[in-house]
Design a protein around this nucleic acid. Sequence first.
DNA 1: GAAACAATGGGATACGGTTTCGCCACCGGC
DNA 2: GCCGGTGGCGAAACCGTATCCCATTGTTTC
Lengths: 368, 368
Amino acid sequence: MSQRKAPGDAGRATIRDVAQRAGVSVASVSRVLSGNYPVSEELRRRVMKVVRDLDYVTNAHARSLAGGGTPTVAILINNITGAAFAHVAKGVEGAATLRGWLSLVGTTGDDPERELALVNLMRQQGVAAVVLLGGAYDYDEYQLRMARFARSLDAAGSHLVLVGRPPLEGDVPATTVDYDNEGGAYAMASHLLSAGHRRVLVLPGHQELTTAQGRLRGAQRAFEAYGVPFDPGLVRHGPYDYEHGYDAVEESLREGLDFTAVLAGTDVVAAGAMQALRAAGLRVPEDVSIVGYDDIPLASQLTPQLTTVHVPYEEMGRVALRAVADRREGGSGRRKGADGDHLVLGTHVVVRNSVRPPARREGADRGE
Amino acid sequence: MSQRKAPGDAGRATIRDVAQRAGVSVASVSRVLSGNYPVSEELRRRVMKVVRDLDYVTNAHARSLAGGGTPTVAILINNITGAAFAHVAKGVEGAATLRGWLSLVGTTGDDPERELALVNLMRQQGVAAVVLLGGAYDYDEYQLRMARFARSLDAAGSHLVLVGRPPLEGDVPATTVDYDNEGGAYAMASHLLSAGHRRVLVLPGHQELTTAQGRLRGAQRAFEAYGVPFDPGLVRHGPYDYEHGYDAVEESLREGLDFTAVLAGTDVVAAGAMQALRAAGLRVPEDVSIVGYDDIPLASQLTPQLTTVHVPYEEMGRVALRAVADRREGGSGRRKGADGDHLVLGTHVVVRNSVRPPARREGADRGE
DNA sequence: GAAACAATGGGATACGGTTTCGCCACCGGC
DNA sequence: GCCGGTGGCGAAACCGTATCCCATTGTTTC
């Protein structure tokens, strides 16, 4: 009754329980377990036996309070079920586990309020880094908001990493891992143009999404480079989902728009577009060609398999984690260097079976 | 020099910093922030102002050491990028966030060693529950291994939840959230049989995976119920991926196997099968019907859209979290009751466009 | 044989909160 | 005007671990 805890009490065993039962001091147990201090073989055996008997594990909270502890990376994502960013998350988590780091996840559901709440929550957890995934909306507020996050995390000894988002302007303590979004779109559009397509229905995504803006710009640049007039009337904005792809194509056909190919903002949009074309009795790629973007597994699972732009999502995740790990181990070296805080990975076109030269039709080549 | 920390020092602000700067005691700051004790308006204002000025957040480790702390649920998953279990994870995470819980994730990559390491890691973190996702291999060792996990976690005040896995035998402190796997397969096979199919290529999955076993059993039962002989020669085992679907169909065709429909173990396998049929010049569903299982988004994005079995993955995640949350709040009530520790959710067939009655062919209906 | 030394184990303290306990001032009632 | 009650706040005792510092013992060296 006088001792603080009954022998067979419920709840976790503490290091004191182990020490008492092994007849040694708490310090010795700690040393045996952490292994960074010389201990005699005899002591080690005694302690380890009790540890096994009691099924003891150290309390991670106490450990990290006392200075030790495993680093943790927080992954903040709009929606886990989105294939593209799930791959980034996989990359981050995999690289984290490889180094013995832990991964926390939170989903924001596109809600700035939740995003704020989650960043604060992660700050409480004392995470080594917060990785924010996904394209951002280009509100004016975005830069300010992210800069605030970055400084706040930096002050707490943490670090902000933006993946697949535009980098922050000014002297902000954040790392950006990006891919050549516009370049991929340029290459993809060039592929269509060189196949002979001149009238292309473009479904870049939401007008305010930075990703969509870049993909549209890339396409436009390709048209310019080929000297082909770009018709704004063939651009349809909308969310990155199957329904949008379907609806956009259906409406375009109903309005009598003239096009021989569809340049979709993502593979999922392309899938919707493909379905709508089929529903209208058009064949892919014989009547209309389609290309996507992202190269998620879906792209190669559709019939026909989709020509698309490969984005190294999983590697972006690995790179993001490596960046923060290096920074943490590298110490104070390379402080705020221009290098290292904006990494850009390459993209490339993956040619499959969804593109053919356009069928010859009257006036489709020249005309308006 | 004598004070423990310089005013503008780097690193996080502590509660002491706040207290000192506000000219109050540490206890008062704690009370203002947790809000579970009456404080004067004046005090609250003074403290909150300093909290904002210093951008202070409480240290979650210290808090949980001292008894408080936000509960955390650990999600252990084979592979984040698998659509089905990504949805379960989403359900768990969503329900967790809704209650202010945190979610940790770890991926096991089908490696028992990593599974063990992760469970221990989570035990160190003092998580409220560990949710293990995914079908299990039916090794003899499985039951023992899981029982050990369950008891170990239970002893530490945590709890094991198995989602989409077979329940544990005996008096083991674990909760299982399951779906009517066999029933779904039964219904799906019945759908094919009632459409007139008699010779069906079955691709249930890996022979040792419990999920695959259940799906195969369900199909067999349906054949029995219809009085149709089940041909073991039309069963092809293999992993739940696109390649297996493709290869299995390709081989079956090459071997000259006679079938009018494919019953795939998952939608992804169905996608592969569909592609292989097309490659062989067969039309879906005119020449061969196909059905899947899981009803992931892919199913409705294929052409033709896939008839499949809907599994309420996301809800399973929510249910799993609710189960542990209830148990934690309900306290010691309903201890080891038979109810509540094995929850089974229903499945149903989603009819789309990938099934037609079989084309009339010589001898396909009757004969051997 | 004594002294200096290396090896190893124990006691005490710090980490940053929460919570119990007790003090003080202020209030109304007699 | 004195006394008991009460609301509001501060001091201090934990939570479980890592680590600094010192004591003890066995070993080497002169």
